[in-house]
Amino acid sequence: MAKNYTSKKRTIEDLELIATKIREDIIKSLEKAGSGHSAGPLGLADIFTALYFDIMKHDPKDPTWDQRDIFILSNGHCAPVLYTTLAHAGYFEIAELSTLRKFGSRLQGHPERERLPGIETTSGPLGCGLSQAAGMALAMKINKDYHRWIYCTLGDGEQNEGNVWEAAMLIAKYNLHNVIAITDRNNIQIDGTTEHVMPLEDLRAKWESFGWHVIDINGNDIDSIIDATAMARSIVEKPVMILAHTIPGKGVDFMEGDYHWHGIPVGIEDVAGAPPKNEQAKSALHQLRTLEGKIRSEHE
């Protein structure tokens, strides 16, 4: 039975503030961990904020609620943004974020379902999330459970994996239109730009030819993210892929657009032209806390 659940509606400004806090905590926890991906998680903060603070039906106090919407992080290396968002949403204490990637922590380097409430599946090895979303949607179809949505983020580089396209075909075959996929189209992967490593374009045409409806959006604009998912829920004739164009390292000017940050934690390695270690981290936090100079930081 559905519980009496009403999501608290927030203004876009409120959501942007939450996204900023999430970015701050991603940087703090990565700095403490000393390793991990920073660019992807920072680029995804707006999408995660929109999902967990506006779009999805979920209850942090009851993570296995049988009527919840489901979120699958197929790009498991972006765990920091998921952990930080879950903490801010109330799944666990924000203080626990400082244990990221440490021995004994529930916040493993890549997320594990069995260890932390709110994690729907284990991920990290790429290309498997969309298939699991498909399996969940099939189970809902068998159960005649038509009121739930499954949101799945994928990396763009991840789409080098054949498993993704196997899932794409199956989801279209069974028209599992309650699966809403979101590609983090940030154009970077570990060895460089996606178009250099293994060209993905024309990515829209690829998904369309696999039988999907494709929506291109600015993935760093919360309003657009909310609009696109609303439209995706209204399209029942096809599954929907949202190509969310994001800026890697969004919110930190010396990170934005530089693929070196994909696998380098803040404050660990000097990047040419960047300030030294601690100064770098401080500068990053300062930019975030001030919304790139737009507001006064509460820490100043």
């Binding site: 729907e120 399996g135 969940m136 189970a139 199956l170």
Partner: peptide, 19 residues
């Protein structure tokens, strides 16, 4: 699932997650 063994077990994992 067609000739797609990677999808075979990962779709199954999604089904298992739902009981």
């Amino acid at each position: 699932v067609g000739v797609a063994e990677q999808n075979l077990v990962t779709v199954a994992a999604g089904l298992a997650a739902m009981g």
